[in-house]
Design a protein around this nucleic acid. Sequence first.
DNA 1: AGTCCACAGGAAGGGCAGGCGA
DNA 2: TCGCCTGCCCTTCCTGTGGACT
Length: 403
Amino acid sequence: MGEDQKLQDKFSQYLENESIFNDKDVLSTNYKPNDILHREDQIEELASILAPSLKGNDPSNVFIYGTVGTGKTLVVDHVCKELKSVAENGEEPLDTVYINCKMKKVADTEYRLTAKLARELGADVPSTGLPTEEVYDRFFEALKDTEGVVIIILDEIDSLIKKIGDDFLYNLTRIDDDLGSTKVSVVGISNDLNFTDYMDARVKSSLSEEEIIFPPYNALELKEILRQRAEDGFVEGSLDDGVISKCSALAASEHGDARRAIDLLRVAGELSERDNKSKVTVDYVDTAQEKIEKDRVVETVQSQPKHSQLTLYTILQLSNNGGNVVTGDVYSKYKDIARKAGTDPLTQRRISDLIDELDMLGVIEAQVVSKGRHGRTRKISMDLGEHIESKLDDIITDKFYLN
DNA sequence: AGTCCACAGGAAGGGCAGGCGA
DNA sequence: TCGCCTGCCCTTCCTGTGGACT
């Protein structure tokens, strides 16, 4: 049998096999279900906080806390949508602006965030070039031109504040004073429960007038969420017993992240389908877990700048030899590797920051330890598994023609 | 009890790219 | 075109520090 024939067989077999998916969108991360499970209290609370806007009153500012995948964005989106649709039939004008502060190149600095806000309100602001003050002015002008209540939703605000400080929020809390008829309310969404520690007390008290906590889902709740999605997303009977339990158990043990649970279910389905299976078995959940982790790591590493990749490569080489890896070792070997890759090495200070970044990205583990007489340093290790580590090694080796 | 290592990590600023208005 | 602004990456210089060693 020729290669062409094989390929044709493969395709026709693919066609013959009925998909186990009914509607894959339901299992995607962006999907917004009409029925949000286990968040009734939070929906209720947020709705009652924002309700005064329907009568043209200034609603309280709200801070929403919860780790990833606890439904924060989903709930806020849902409540705002309902609020807006009621407002359309009412008399008081209402506007909502949603901004994800973590979006690279869009809203990750003070300038960009203000510019983005101003643009959302219809002002014309260039992506760079103006003094920040001017951008604020244009933003305020745009606000004044907007009638009624404006609800500004700042998602993932914690990472932004950690990066640029709370000046921006401070300015935002004061704008109500000189805006005339326009009323502004801020909804901040944070993944970090303790992040108000980073904020000035004045900002803190005026912005967190109300607080809503989103606790992680437990395994049981995750199970129901998954069952709801699976019902619409998969063809009936294509999930083995225990698949949903396994997905929810895995996700529950990792911070009760619903997004992760849904990803697991979807990827397990995709992998089974790729193997022409008519049913998803429990084994595929494990494979899905590995695949998701691998994809995540490979993707983050590939998007890193070259010196970060070279630093990681150095760590890979050193930790392969076993033993403890510390910053000093990494730096001296990194210098050689950088030259081998045809580039000037950066300073140790910079590499120290890159190591810290790699740690935060979850690619390596770096812990500050004191070795007494032998100084303070970071103990660096990798725990990604043979498979992923050799893959990363390959990627970087190829890219810089090392070896 | 004090010393001192090997860094961590803060502060300031240089240099560059992208982009403005004039 | 120029002067100016900002963000970003990086360097230089610096102070701080946990605990093994003396």
